[in-house]
Simulated scan of single mutants.
Amino acid sequence: MSEATPNPILTSDALVLIAVLGRFEAELRGGAMSGPAIETLGARCRSVGLLDPHEPARLDSVAAILEDIGQRLRYAIGEYDADPTRP
């Protein structure tokens, strides 16, 4: 898991990012994103350690990563008492 950011983000920024992530996740799960777009997003997830470097960028794995990021943002703005993505 990555470290926390050195500087906080605004709650309004987090809320907009949550909406953007939700939209991308819905488009992924709904089949509206093409293979190259999924691979590009998967490559970014790999580069920051969110996707195993040997795992292909599958639709379901990339969508799950976006969902987890959204959940962590919700935790960051205080919607949860604990990070729901941590076991």
Score class of each variant (00 low, 15 high):
85 T>F: 01
78 G>R: 11
24 F>I: 08
19 A>E: 14
48 V>Y: 14
45 C>T: 01
24 F>P: 00
61 S>N: 04
6 P>Y: 12
76 A>T: 13
2 S>Q: 15
11 T>A: 03
56 P>V: 11
37 A>T: 13
62 V>I: 15
25 E>C: 02
38 I>F: 09
36 P>G: 00
84 P>Y: 06
62 V>G: 15
39 E>L: 02
2 S>C: 04
30 G>F: 12
6 P>M: 08
57 A>H: 02
23 R>V: 09
48 V>E: 15
29 R>G: 00
81 D>C: 04
37 A>Y: 05
85 T>R: 03
69 I>G: 10
53 P>K: 07
38 I>Y: 11
70 G>Q: 13
60 D>N: 04
5 T>W: 06
18 I>H: 15
43 A>F: 01
8 P>K: 08
14 A>Y: 04
46 R>M: 13
51 L>H: 05
82 A>G: 02
26 A>P: 00
27 E>Q: 14
34 S>C: 00
51 L>C: 07
36 P>L: 00
79 E>R: 15
24 F>V: 13
72 R>C: 00
69 I>K: 09
71 Q>T: 01
60 D>C: 10
19 A>I: 01
1 M>S: 07
24 F>Y: 04
43 A>K: 01
55 E>A: 14
82 A>W: 06
42 G>I: 03
64 A>D: 14
55 E>F: 01
73 L>G: 11
21 L>F: 06
74 R>V: 03
45 C>S: 08
36 P>Q: 07
63 A>I: 04
84 P>S: 04
30 G>Q: 11
36 P>S: 05
13 D>S: 07
24 F>D: 09
68 D>W: 01
71 Q>F: 05
17 L>M: 07
21 L>K: 04
53 P>M: 14
34 S>N: 04
86 R>H: 12
50 L>M: 14
80 Y>T: 08
36 P>Y: 05
71 Q>C: 08
73 L>C: 15
51 L>I: 02
70 G>E: 15
30 G>A: 03
8 P>V: 12
68 D>M: 11
21 L>D: 05
51 L>W: 02
70 G>W: 07
21 L>C: 04
9 I>P: 01
41 L>P: 01
53 P>F: 13
7 N>P: 00
55 E>K: 06
5 T>P: 09
21 L>Y: 09
68 D>S: 14
2 S>E: 08
7 N>W: 12
42 G>K: 01
19 A>T: 14
52 D>L: 00
44 R>T: 05
55 E>R: 03
71 Q>E: 15
37 A>S: 11
13 D>L: 13
77 I>Y: 09
4 A>S: 12
44 R>Q: 15
38 I>T: 11
34 S>V: 07
22 G>F: 12
71 Q>S: 04
25 E>V: 02
41 L>A: 07
79 E>F: 12
39 E>K: 03
34 S>H: 08
19 A>G: 13
19 A>M: 06
47 S>C: 10
61 S>E: 05
49 G>Q: 09
22 G>K: 08
7 N>V: 14
5 T>K: 04
50 L>C: 08
44 R>C: 14
11 T>M: 07
63 A>P: 01
72 R>W: 00
65 I>Y: 00
78 G>E: 11
6 P>H: 08
33 M>W: 09
87 P>D: 14
41 L>G: 02
41 L>I: 05
59 L>S: 09
56 P>W: 02
84 P>E: 15
56 P>L: 13
